[in-house]
Design a protein around this nucleic acid. Sequence first.
DNA 1: GTTAGTAGGTACCTAGAGGAAAGTGACTAC
DNA 2: GTAGTCACTTTCCTCTAGGTACCTACTAAC
Lengths: 118, 118
Amino acid sequence: MEPVPELACPIAPVVDLVFSRWTTPILWTLNQYGRQRFVELERRIGTITPKVLTQRLRQLERDGLVTRTYHPEVPPRVEYEISELGRSLAPIFHNLAEWSKRNLTQVDEARLRYDGTN
Amino acid sequence: MEPVPELACPIAPVVDLVFSRWTTPILWTLNQYGRQRFVELERRIGTITPKVLTQRLRQLERDGLVTRTYHPEVPPRVEYEISELGRSLAPIFHNLAEWSKRNLTQVDEARLRYDGTN
DNA sequence: GTTAGTAGGTACCTAGAGGAAAGTGACTAC
DNA sequence: GTAGTCACTTTCCTCTAGGTACCTACTAAC
């Protein structure tokens, strides 16, 4: 058995890309509510700070999952939209939501069982 | 674990469950190579430390995604196996691998484009 | 008697992610 | 002339996940 590096797990890159902190709610919100402005995102997600929201949006833009449109008005207006590439993740999100709906109670039960037997 | 502002995002719980740090390679390895011992997991994943591996395995066991079998021999033997519930994630892993294979190059291209225009 | 192997446990420590709060610039409405 | 809006930026600070290193009991084998 040869030691296999962590990259032997072929989904590690996409997990980093899509499921790192805050990126999932951002992508979900953009996918769900369509093109929206910075403050709309901020308010919908609720507890995210502007600094982190900016960081994550820049990263998502760099990765090509989100497109940013700047309107040089006063006050400035910036709109974010999920890209074609980002939208291709929608079925996966849907699968995850389905799995959640079907199996999350089993996780809760397992936890109760585990905590009960100790 | 953390305050739950991401309630607007219905997949946040399952993301915490399945895609938090180290859990994905662990689940993937168990799903790919079947039932195995602690050291086998350790060697296959490569860079994980025993402390963290123990922590994550405990958590996965508590969540019902992994089953642990202890054999009181000398030296002790413990086997880990993915549970039925854990195995139900396999299609999602497969989807992610497919998405990777099909779209990861587009992410790389997007990054080059982004870095090039700045 | 000391080394190796197993499956961890424990104590300590550090890097870095992320939160809080205030600032910015250009303009408008009151 | 002051307050408010927007989309951030900057500075400072905290917290904790994860890494390092060492320890445990038990036995066989050398």
